[in-house]
Design a protein around this nucleic acid. Structure first.
Length: 291
DNA sequence: AATGAGGCCTGGTTGC
DNA sequence: TGCAACCAGGCCTCAT
């Protein structure tokens, strides 16, 4: 599942593979893929042709390519659950779930958006000031900075978190509080910090939250170093490579296996129509639980 | 305003 | 064997 480390791997691939190149032509083969591009496929395709790509940026799980000459527009992408941005030779056979295709004037590798479950999408969007001298796509300007952002401020996130009246894991997954963390890295971070996701946010101490942010940083960086987590092979880099972090997962997807720290059996619980994995001994469920 | 539930999607897996 | 139900889950919309 693409969360922050996976998206960052893809961003790096795009920075190396498409920055500075001129788009020749674009084709869109599934309308849902550009559902966030309000003016439709013809507008999307027409406005991209001939544009030069500037840089590849990211916030949380969103990434975007700035478009020149003005740099005030961007091609925004979200991978959803199964989106892939692949750099392939033009003669590569059409993938079963190919949704969009970008060719370039230099006849080098082309860019393909492949997305089995179509939760992902592309849109051509205006960029707006991010309040710190940078730019951010207007539709995602409300997303919080992520832990790898130089301007990310854990003390501020701690303060906001303690004002919430919700459960810890729910808050950790809220992209307007801190972005980039999804179900896998939320569970891994909570396990490392020995916190249960059902802790009411207002009961968390500064010390506990400091422990959590340290764990989040660690998990994200280690996952990035491993090239991300390719839990069901739906996530790959621009070169088609799987990430290797799955083998490092302590709890996610490991129900019934021993906790790597204490040996108690990992449990799976339903949470928000999905799953949460915890160690019952390292992360006892609080008496006053929320979520 | 803040919080939470529901819906969108497809294909692999599971159970009958 | 065949079919239906289930599951993965990020994020948007809507209700409270």
């Amino acid at each position: 599942m693409p969360e922050l480390p996976e998206v960052e791997v893809v961003r790096r691939g795009l920075a190396l593979g498409v920055a500075g190149r001129h788009i020749a032509a674009v084709t869109v083969s599934h309308p849902r893929t550009i559902r966030r591009h309000e003016l439709g496929a013809a507008d999307f395709v027409g406005r991209l042709a001939g544009r030069r790509i500037g840089s590849a940026s990211r916030r949380g799980k969103y990434l975007w390519l700035t478009l020149e000459p003005n740099g005030d527009e961007g091609l925004m992408a979200h991978l959803g659950m199964s989106g892939q941005l692949l750099l392939v030779t033009p003669d590569t056979p059409t993938q079963p779930h190919l949704r969009a295709r970008f060719t370039f004037t230099d006849a080098g590798l082309e860019l393909r958006f492949v997305d089995q479950r179509t939760f992902g999408g592309l849109a051509l969007v205006p960029l707006t000031a991010d309040g710190a001298g940078g730019a951010i796509p207007l539709p995602v300007a409300h997303i919080a900075r992520d832990p790898l952002d130089p301007l990310y401020d854990p003390a501020q996130v701690t303060a906001r978190m303690r004002r919430r009246r919700t459960g810890l894991k729910r808050a950790l997954l809220d992209q307007t509080l801190v972005s980039g963390v999804g179900n896998i890295y939320a569970d891994e971070s909570l396990w490392r910090a020995r916190l249960h996701g059902a802790r009411p946010t207002e009961t968390l101490t500064e010390r506990e939250l400091a422990r959590l942010w340290a764990a989040v940083d660690q998990v994200l960086i280690e996952a990035l170093d491993a090239g991300g987590t390719s839990f069901d092979a739906l996530y790959v880099s621009t070169e088609g490579a799987s990430g290797l972090f799955e083998r490092e997962l302590a709890v996610y997807g490991r129900a019934g296996e021993p906790c790597p720290r204490c040996g108690a059996l990992i449990r799976r619980d339903a949470f928000m129509n999905r799953s949460s994995f915890t160690c019952p001994r390292c992360q006892p469920r609080p008496r006053r639980a929320r979520g």
